[in-house]
């Protein structure tokens, strides 16, 4: 066992001497999660909007998304293997992205749905009474006012995916999980810790970055 002081020194040494190595893994991680989130947004936001106009569909869709969330991540990756083996994609990036997209659906759909439902009914009434079409109402009034909550859902999904993405290495998807996994195999505490820290820092940076984007996309009058 090494003392705390040694651990920190080792850790710093590890980061310095393996800088490009870690950067490579981080970049893989960003690509994996980034792609998954983009696909998740493209699917989840329209589904959330659809839920807000169709109450019957809403309960079913939210139900399914909730079930996705309850499946342990390792199990979900496991399920992907036999299913995608049918098209020879059992391991690698594709199953990982599919799993991450499925995981992100609940926060994105639920927040979009809630955000649009939470738009002040008087504002919706005014929009209707003035003569906006349903589509104009959505684009000009509901989405801009729902923006902060929708973005919060995307942020939650991203941070969640960065964590879950670390497990994706087990099905050969690469990413920062690889450092942790290698550390476990070699019983190298420094490596395990380095991987864990890198994942946490990435999650924090991603959250910060998305807050900036949220700020950019939120209309001035909606900011509190």
């Amino acid at each position: 066992m090494c003392s705390g002081g040694d651990l920190i020194v080792n850790l710093i040494e590890y980061f310095v001497s393996n800088f490009t190595f870690i950067l490579g893994y981080t970049w893989d991680h960003i690509k994996l999660v980034g792609l998954a989130i983009i696909i998740a947004i493209v699917i989840g936001v329209p589904l959330g909007i659809y839920c807000s106009v169709n109450k019957y569909a809403a309960s079913t869709i939210l139900q399914i998304a909730s079930i996705m969330m309850t499946i342990p991540s390792l199990a979900l990756f496991g399920i992907m293997i036999p299913v995608l083996s049918l098209i020879n994609e059992g391991i690698g990036t594709l199953p990982a992205i599919i799993a991450l997209v499925l995981y992100s659906q609940l926060p994105i759909i639920r927040n979009t749905y809630t955000a649009i439902n939470n738009v002040d009914p008087d504002i919706r009434d005014a929009a209707n009474g003035i003569g906006l079409t349903t589509f104009q109402r959505l684009i000009k009034v509901e989405l801009p006012n729902a923006m902060p909550l929708i973005m919060a859902g995307i942020r939650t999904a991203t941070v969640l995916n960065i964590g879950v993405g670390a497990i994706a290495t087990l099905i050969g998807a690469g990413g920062l999980g690889g450092i942790i996994y290698q550390g476990i195999l070699r019983t190298n505490n420094t490596m395990i810790l380095a991987g864990a820290i890198a994942v946490a820092v990435l999650a924090l940076i991603a959250d910060l970055f998305l807050r900036l984007i949220e700020n950019l996309f939120t209309p001035k009058g909606v900011k509190k």
Partner: peptide, 30 residues
């Protein structure tokens, strides 16, 4: 419906202004 509503001025108690638009955009929506 839509065309007709644009030809009717509509004022409600809670004013129903759109929080995301400035005053000029709000007033000039129709």
């Amino acid at each position: 419906k839509i065309e007709m509503r644009r030809n009717i001025g509509y004022v409600i108690q809670s004013n129903g202004l759109f929080p995301n638009m400035n005053i000029e955009d709000n007033a000039m929506i129709v």
